[in-house]
Design a protein around this nucleic acid. Structure first.
Length: 343
DNA sequence: GGCGTAACGGTTGAA
DNA sequence: AGTTCAACCGTTACG
């Protein structure tokens, strides 16, 4: 694979990508737009010079979640050290300053504060004691000596408090199955595309979080994409991409509101905020707080127009079977007098 | 030829 | 401060 510069590589189609990093939102948006215009995925792939696997994935995700945004990269599973757990630990510690971490762990279980799936590990408890309750007392040096009576399973800690439903883990992780977009393993994902709809106030927009756009702003040519074609309000998201020499001509007829709503599931510095302040579309900041019914976001309701006030009506989900008449030549095509130059 | 997806190597960020 | 781990990414190759 040819390395064209510090950041970008070139795929087989000649498109530039950054390994390990999501495509810029404008490109993702463009993929969905083109698909909604009836262009076949293979043509989109060629047109945007994005691998068909990626096109397929993005469109599948969009169909699934209603969001064009990438998932949350990095980070860890939702913390098990919820305020309630910390409070309990504090209480235990206050009640018995000499209590050991493993004893706390046992008590969390026996008292029902946690279940076996979300009980913090001993090391986590130790860290809590050290970092959050450190001032209470510190007989901790003994903890490494006083070991639990039996080897406890410190394995994965499970993100969902008291989650013991049918899908409860059987010794492995909870959350989604492999590649699940529904039972998303991290709480961010539980409201993929949902939060911004449900709680516009939770979409702070440009709140000072610096968007990590440096790579893409450096990418020489993300295959000629232009921000012109994106709906108002999304422009903030592609701000950085304006610098790209990208050329997409037509004013997009598809406003595709809500495409970017799912940025709530991305951390503030998440690269998905390519363009920084996408004020009304992107939520920054982590939203680890419990999400009501978050495990089963209604994907059917995700596109409910009423959930996206002020935004134009969502288009229906993409049809998997595009009408042949909508096939577009990859050479050039016109929209509103503008011509898309493929090369 | 088009499409879905596993494998792969990479990035990221909380613990 | 550095490491680990598990999430995600897009590309590639295969069926």
């Amino acid at each position: 694979m040819e390395i064209i510069n510090l950041y970008g590589e070139v795929n087989q189609l000649g498109g530039v990508f950054v390994n390990g990093r999501p495509l810029p939102n404008p490109v993702r948006l463009r993929i969905v737009e083109l698909a909604q215009l009836g262009m076949r995925p293979c043509d989109i792939s060629r047109q945007l010079r994005v691998s068909h696997g990626c096109v397929s994935k993005i469109l599948a995700r969009y169909n699934e979640t209603g969001s064009i945004l990438p998932g949350a990269i990095g980070g860890s599973k939702p913390r098990v050290t919820t305020p309630a757990v910390v409070k309990s630990i504090r209480d235990y510690k206050q009640g018995d300053p000499g209590i050991f971490a493993w004893e706390i762990r046992d008590r969390l279980l026996s008292d029902g504060v946690c279940d076996k799936y979300n009980v913090p590990s001993v090391s986590s408890i130790s860290r809590i004691l050290r970092n959050k309750i450190g001032t209470l007392s510190e007989p901790r040096q003994c903890e490494s000596i006083k070991t639990p009576p039996a080897p406890l399973q410190y394995g994965p800690v499970y993100p969902y408090p008291s989650y013991s439903g049918p899908g409860a883990p059987t010794g492995t992780r909870t959350g989604s199955g492999p590649a699940g977009h529904i039972g998303l393993p991290r709480s961010w994902h539980n409201f993929l595309g949902i939060r911004a709809f449900m709680d516009p106030a939770a979409v702070p927009g440009s709140d000072g979080h610096p968007a990590k756009v440096e790579e893409w702003t450096s990418v020489p040519s993300m295959t000629n994409m232009s921000s012109r074609s994106f709906p108002p309000g999304i422009h903030g998201a592609e701000k950085s991409n304006n610098e790209l020499d990208v050329r997409f001509p037509q004013q997009s007829s598809s406003s595709l509101p809500g495409y970017l709503s799912a940025c709530a599931h991305s951390p503030p510095n998440q690269y998905c905020v390519y363009g920084g302040p996408a004020t009304n579309y992107m939520s920054t900041g982590h939203h680890w707080q419990p999400q009501p019914s978050s495990l089963t976001p209604s994907l059917n309701s995700r596109m409910t127009p009423s959930l996206s006030p002020g935004l134009t009506q969502r288009k229906p989900p993409l049809n998997k079977h595009h009408h042949p008449a909508h096939r577009l030549s990859s050479a050039s095509w016109r929209h509103g007098g503008n011509t898309m130059d493929v090369k």
